[in-house]
Design a protein around this nucleic acid. Structure first.
Lengths: 132, 132
DNA sequence: CTGCATCCTGGAGGATACTG
DNA sequence: CAGTATCCTCCAGGATGCAG
């Protein structure tokens, strides 16, 4: 974010500067954590490295297709590191990169906010539903 | 978030506690900010209240359908307040609620992170593409 | 001006079967 | 064990037209 520019200014100017959505920094990150499984995978890897199967069992109801795909995306963005051990049968370990760890900081704030304010949101939804 | 529980533990236990995804606090918030336009609208309203048409012009390439729908969702969650002025023609003003303003705090962190680390992500993507 | 109703398309994501 | 390949479904979101 440029110094001297407020959050709002940056958000809106970011769209001017990046007419191609796929190139916008904010949208790129937002889309990533918006994925159904990204945050869940990142939070699991925040604890310790996991092997593919371990991660699958830990999360529980993720399809192997989406686990593979999400891990690839996170790896492509440099948030997750992948290490293959050429054993038989093969074993692959996934861990958070330093960049991935740094993302935990703002992510924690957001998760914290979600927990803190969910009651209020829940109530607001109820009231809104009653009126409508 | 429960005291004594780490971020990771909470994320994973949250899924146990809320098997219905639509009831999970974290997913609820994540899905909301994941919307293509939510963060953009919130950031605009962080500056000052806006009327419908103003907001439409400010954002630029949002369809009126999605503007209406996203505003309704934000309103339902209690993040945005809607006030109708019975003039002719009618005028409607949208503003951030206190809850909506409180969301700006963690949101700013995330947006800040995006700007700070986009170069690294960009480079990671390039390298990943080269290898593959 | 501020919407709602309708139609339509692309892409996220699930289920299933196969491979090194 | 750790994936890849297909097929299929569902819905976010765009375009357009109408209304109070």
């Amino acid at each position: 974010m440029q110094p001297g520019l407020s959050f709002e200014e940056n958000m809106l100017e970011a769209r001017q500067a990046y007419p191609d959505v796929s190139q916008c920094p904010v949208r790129g990150v937002l889309d990533q954590i918006a994925n159904k499984w990204s945050v869940l995978i990142i939070s699991a890897l925040a604890e310790r490295p996991y092997r593919f199967g371990e991660l699958r069992r830990e999360i529980g109801d993720i399809s192997q297709r989406m686990l593979t795909q999400t891990l690839r995306d996170l790896q492509a963005d440099g948030l997750v590191e992948r290490e293959v051990f050429p054993t038989t049968p093969p074993s692959v370990e996934y861990r958070l990169s330093p960049l991935g760890h740094s993302l935990l900081v703002p992510l924690r704030s957001l998760v914290q906010w979600s927990f803190d304010n969910f009651p209020a949101i829940r109530e607001a939804r109820q009231q809104f539903a009653d009126v409508a």
